[in-house]
């Protein structure tokens, strides 16, 4: 059972944490229902970063050295994505150098957002204890519940002298989260779509039709909080040093897999679109990571200029689901 405290204002927590941590607040307003357009993945898996420098004699690893920082007010979808990336990048030294410095303060959602469906993919709307160090929950009667879910979180609020709250408050939180889940719109197209993808029932022709609508713009992969593909390039410094940079890439680019010989194993847009959605909803990925790659943030739906974001795609492939899997 996690400990739970009453917090009168967010500013109080803010200023206490600021004594140790640099504060990063991804949301304009902690408590808004919509997630920020840009997910917080870049705080750990940087959009561009240097891997090493070559000075003409040696290759020298260039690990980031950020000061301790707190992501203050991150919603459950994005925290679930961070937990997913924690597994994917478990052995990546650059990711881990940033991740080890971070304290995660989650914020429960109590109203569904426009494109989100976190509840359908077990990623919200309430923050799971395993995904954050501290969790905030707005009390309708005023003030905040502050839940401590890790040693690091407990250490971070030490000395704040907060009043402990009892189980009644935690039960009231659960009720408000349940009410939020009940308020999400019909999600049968998602469940049917997942069944169709996982059982390989979507015909190539359908993927090809969806592929026609893919502009290869990388909007979805850039905003997706679990997308992790990257490319590398060498850049020359003024003093003659050379640095290797890695940067976010997109599996939906035509050239993503193209080899120097021009052989391209995923030349067809439909093949690339199929791969993207299989990555997000394939049962085999779920086996590896303990969950689907999609956390239900809805950003792809929000951004896709070709109207093949998650809801649009799942509605079009839902009919391929087996009849008994509604």
């Amino acid at each position: 059972m996690m400990s739970c405290y009453l917090l009168d204002t967010l500013e109080r927590l803010h200023s206490h944490l600021a004594r140790v941590y640099q504060i990063v607040q991804p949301l304009e307003d902690v408590g808004q229902s919509a997630p920020p357009l840009v997910s917080p993945k870049g705080y750990f898996f940087a959009e561009q970063e240097n891997l090493f420098v070559f000075d003409g004699e040696c290759f020298r690893e260039t690990l980031p050295q950020p000061p301790p920082f707190v992501l203050f007010g991150v919603q459950s979808c994005d925290l679930t994505a961070i937990a997913y990336q924690d597994q994917f990048f478990a052995r990546d030294p650059y990711y881990q150098a940033r991740r080890q410095q971070a304290l995660l303060v989650g914020i429960d959602c109590v109203t569904p957002c426009e494109h989100g469906f976190c509840a359908s993919v077990d990623a919200g709307p309430g923050v799971k204890a395993g995904c954050a160090d501290l969790i905030l929950h707005a009390r309708p009667e005023g003030g905040w519940m502050l839940m401590v879910c890790s040693d690091k979180g407990g250490e971070a609020i030490r000395g704040m002298e907060l009043d402990q709250m009892d189980d009644t408050e935690l039960r009231a939180r659960d009720r408000r989260i349940d009410d939020c889940i009940a308020a999400f719109p019909d999600d049968s197209h998602l469940h049917r779509g997942i069944a169709a993808i996982s059982q390989g029932r979507v015909p190539d022709q359908q993927w090809q039709q969806l592929g026609i609508q893919c502009l290869g713009c990388s909007g979805c992969t850039t905003l997706c909080p679990t997308c992790s593909c990257y490319g590398t390039r060498d850049l020359s410094e003024d003093q003659g040093d050379i640095r290797r940079q890695r940067f976010w890439d997109s599996c939906l680019y035509e050239s993503f897999q193209r080899e120097a010989s021009q052989h391209n194993p995923s030349e067809e847009a439909g093949e690339r679109v199929r791969r993207f959605w299989t990555h997000k909803f394939g049962d085999n990925f779920a086996k590896t990571f303990g969950r689907y790659g999609c956390v239900g943030c809805g950003r792809c739906e929000q951004t896709c200029p070709g109207v093949i974001g998650v809801h649009s795609v799942m509605r079009r492939i839902a009919d391929y689901a087996p009849d008994d899997d509604v």
Binding site: L51, F52, F59, R60, E61, A83, D86, Q87, A90, R91, D92, P93, Y94, Q96, R99, Q100, K128, A129, G130, C131, C149, S150, D151, K152, R244, G290
Partner: peptide, 16 residues
Amino acid sequence: MPRTMMSESAELLSLT
């Protein structure tokens, strides 16, 4: 440390 958070025991890779 919660289960789903990073495992500190994993040996880090080198890309250098």
